[in-house]
Simulated scan of single mutants.
Amino acid sequence: MNKAKYSLMIKKEALRLGFMSCGISKADFLEVEAPRLEKWLNQNMHGQMQYMENHFDKRLDPRLLVEGAKSVVSLTLNYYPQEQQREDTFKISKYAYGEDYHFVIKDKLKDLLAFIQDNIGEVDGRVFVDSAPVLDKAWAAKSGLGWIGKNNNLISRQSGSFFFIAELILDLELDADGITTDHCGTCTKCIDACPTNAIEQPYIVNGSKCISYLTIELKDAIPDEFQGEIDDWMFGCDVCQDVCPWNRFAKPHSEPRFSPKEELINYNKQEWKELTRELFNGIYKKSAVKRTKYEGLMRNIDFLSR
């Protein structure tokens, strides 16, 4: 009785805090994902993302992250923007338009955890936002929030894929939700549209060829083989999401902290080329773009301008 009651309480509060959806799964070993992750790493599809090799066991078992863990609460937060960049410019992935999502989501997660502790009692748990060894998409799929598509993004029939994923891992037993079915069907739009052919097979993405990797994670020079293939993306890439038919259901977010700076929307290519460090720090204050730093962004712009 309490499991059902607590599960419903948590989901209602998550929606009140602005999350788009909330699902629950049992904290257990990810048996299906384990061999897939191992194979992906062995084939060096993670490129220079060495952190993907670390904490292999913890990525697959949340009980190693939170002692006595019984439930994984997965949450999604919409970031689809109302207004988008002008077309004739260097492009930034939509998720980075506003304030760094790590800050925004962690604030909401901490509020949710406090609510659980205040209303249910002594519950131990941790909040996770894309910065710890947790397979976000796998847990969200297990929680029924969508299916992992051919482009390796979590996709929802109701809202598409322009959303962040986060988790609460708790030592509280809750009612687990069932998984949903795959609705990609015979569609190959994401595979056909990828400028660098990073989606080498349905459901298998070679991270080292992905534009997001090349413009953010890669610290060395972008290899010449990608000259003319990066499609004016200077930070991240949205191509496989933009062409996904399920994103016709994406609706603009209502999170003020994700609102973009005017320069980000309106700058043309020449203005980006002339970007100074001072302007970079102003436009991207508290932004996810700071991850690539000023030097990294200018490296990308120089590469695109050759």
Results as ranks from 00 to 15, higher is better:
residue 54 N to E: 04
residue 54 N to I: 01
residue 54 N to D: 01
residue 54 N to R: 07
residue 55 H to T: 03
residue 56 F to M: 05
residue 56 F to Y: 07
residue 56 F to D: 00
residue 56 F to R: 02
residue 57 D to Y: 07
residue 58 K to L: 03
residue 58 K to P: 01
residue 59 R to N: 10
residue 59 R to H: 08
residue 60 L to H: 03
residue 60 L to P: 00
residue 60 L to Y: 10
residue 60 L to K: 08
residue 60 L to Q: 11
residue 60 L to D: 11
residue 60 L to V: 07
residue 61 D to Q: 08
residue 61 D to F: 03
residue 62 P to Q: 12
residue 62 P to G: 14
residue 62 P to A: 15
residue 63 R to Y: 09
residue 64 L to R: 13
residue 64 L to M: 07
residue 65 L to E: 00
residue 65 L to R: 13
residue 65 L to Y: 04
residue 65 L to Q: 12
residue 65 L to I: 14
residue 65 L to H: 06
residue 65 L to G: 13
residue 66 V to Q: 11
residue 66 V to R: 12
residue 66 V to C: 14
residue 66 V to L: 15
residue 67 E to Q: 14
residue 68 G to M: 11
residue 68 G to P: 00
residue 68 G to N: 10
residue 68 G to T: 15
residue 69 A to L: 12
residue 69 A to P: 00
residue 69 A to M: 12
residue 69 A to C: 14
residue 70 K to S: 04
residue 70 K to D: 01
residue 70 K to P: 01
residue 70 K to W: 01
residue 71 S to P: 09
residue 71 S to F: 11
residue 71 S to H: 05
residue 71 S to T: 14
residue 71 S to D: 03
residue 72 V to Q: 06
residue 72 V to P: 08
residue 73 V to L: 10
residue 73 V to W: 09
residue 73 V to F: 12
residue 73 V to M: 05
residue 74 S to N: 11
residue 74 S to L: 02
residue 74 S to R: 02
residue 74 S to T: 12
residue 75 L to R: 09
residue 75 L to N: 08
residue 75 L to D: 07
residue 75 L to C: 07
residue 76 T to H: 04
residue 76 T to W: 04
residue 76 T to C: 03
residue 77 L to F: 06
residue 77 L to D: 02
residue 77 L to G: 06
residue 77 L to R: 10
residue 77 L to T: 11
residue 77 L to K: 14
residue 78 N to C: 13
residue 78 N to I: 10
residue 78 N to A: 12
residue 78 N to V: 12
residue 78 N to Q: 11
residue 79 Y to G: 09
residue 79 Y to A: 03
residue 80 Y to P: 10
residue 80 Y to K: 00
residue 81 P to I: 13
residue 82 Q to S: 14
residue 82 Q to P: 14
residue 82 Q to D: 15
residue 83 E to G: 09
residue 84 Q to V: 15
residue 84 Q to A: 06
residue 84 Q to F: 15
residue 85 Q to L: 09
residue 85 Q to H: 02
residue 86 R to F: 05
residue 87 E to I: 09
residue 87 E to L: 12
residue 88 D to V: 02
residue 89 T to N: 01
residue 89 T to Q: 07
residue 89 T to A: 06
residue 89 T to L: 01
residue 89 T to G: 02
residue 90 F to P: 01
residue 90 F to A: 01
residue 90 F to W: 07
residue 90 F to R: 03
residue 91 K to P: 01
residue 91 K to E: 00
residue 91 K to F: 06
residue 91 K to N: 02
residue 92 I to D: 01
residue 93 S to H: 05
residue 93 S to F: 07
residue 93 S to N: 05
residue 93 S to T: 09
residue 94 K to L: 13
residue 94 K to R: 14
residue 94 K to M: 06
residue 94 K to W: 15
residue 95 Y to Q: 13
